[in-house]
Design a protein around this nucleic acid. Structure first.
Lengths: 231, 231
DNA sequence: TGATGTATCTCGGCT
DNA sequence: AGCCGAGGTACATCA
């Protein structure tokens, strides 16, 4: 990994065109050839970048560029597409390199699937007397998140999202249409469950006779393992 | 901006929990207090990070931590949420700081909105005799990109995408359904316009009687400002 | 390998 | 401030 602090301007051409005027910035060149251009603020997304695989060529500046003080031009070329990043360097303030080696990688815990497991374990949140048919009930058009039988013995399909958007309602609608063709299951009604449900999605769901259910993830997790989230 | 190359392990707790085992990594601390943890590969997304506003406190390692060789523990605390990043540093290999100052920011060109403006100015691309009703025609379920009246006086709704996917067809279908309930507008037909249209999306659109239109952005821009895209 | 769904999404625009 | 849509989305999972 090579870290350069430099006064530079940057041009990108690819899916879109973008230009960064002259300023001091951090240039990161990773071992896989990727390049990041970072300013001293903003969040993790660089101002500009190039994904691997790519090749970096150092060009001599044109007469015009030399005249305005450009010392080097770095051309970063994507190997697979024709995306290209041109970095014009006016002054290098710092330039260090280090071998970092492979990274063991991130271990994540506590995502979406977890919500499904929790809800399957806490069917009383949906309604009393419900019993699980199965999680990830497979159909020709994809898996239904949760399928269950209510106290009256009729079938309920649940679509689960972290954020309840229109797409999720469309998805559940398609499942319901399909499931209702199955005489062993029909009639099947739907519940759209999410940590938050967008007004548009709620409207659409209600128009279609789909019930909406807002879930409290922290509470569900709290019931399940009894401890608040800590290290 | 402070750049540290260090042997470290990292724990994050917030929306999810995540752990990075001990390895050499780049730690970037920006002027606004945000922190990035980068490895020597992968794309621009850091392995772990904390968004501003946040505060960094350097803690003395616990007896347990000291025993395994931790020299310092950095606690990066989000100011608004309770997200926290704990960075255990075993060895610092490099530590430099530079003042970068404010960044003038990125200048973009060639995005979605531009395409909409161009198309609204070049209605002949859609069909002769068409006249604009309005761009961003608002409905209860969202804005229709372009609404126009064709040579016969009937209404046409256009959904515009850079990449024409099934979602876009679904979206246009919903608009059409709604617009056709309005006696002042009905009958409304739809055109799905994009720089490229996926086969699945085309099939679905045609099944629903929606016309597909592939746009040549460069040509449209060329007509508009006369110059091809170059640096 | 391509399609699909999620994200500690980020970012900009608008209400 | 919040909501909504797009992204050079990135990223993981699954067919």
């Amino acid at each position: 990994m090579r870290l350069i602090i430099a006064e530079c301007s940057v041009d990108y051409a690819g899916r879109l065109s973008a230009h960064l005027p002259r300023a001091k910035r951090l240039l990161v060149m990773k071992a896989d050839g990727s390049v990041l251009v970072h300013s001293d603020s903003g969040s993790y997304k660089p101002l500009n970048w190039m994904n691997p695989p790519c090749t970096v060529s150092v060009l001599t500046p044109s007469a015009e560029q030399a005249l305005v003080g450009v010392q080097q031009v770095w051309q970063v070329q994507q190997a697979k597409t024709d995306d290209v990043l041109m970095i014009s360097i006016f002054e290098v303030l710092s330039d260090i390199s280090h071998e970092l080696g492979d990274d063991p990688g991130l271990i994540k815990d506590g995502v979406e699937k977890h919500l499904q497991e929790l809800l399957a374990d806490q069917l009383h949140l949906i309604e009393e007397g419900a019993s699980l048919i199965r999680r990830e009930y497979f159909t020709a058009i994809g898996p239904v998140d949760i399928l269950l039988r209510d106290a009256n013995g009729s079938t309920v399909a649940i679509e689960l999202k972290r954020r309840g958007d229109i797409d999720g309602v469309e998805q559940l609608t398609r499942y319901l249409e399909l499931l209702n063709r199955d005489p062993l299951l029909a009639p099947v009604r739907g519940i759209f469950a999410a940590q938050e449900i967008k007004p548009q999605a709620r409207k659409l769901a209600e128009d279609r006779g789909i019930e909406c259910l807002v879930l409290d993830y922290d509470a569900m997790r709290g019931i399940d393992d009894g401890r608040p989230r800590l290290f």
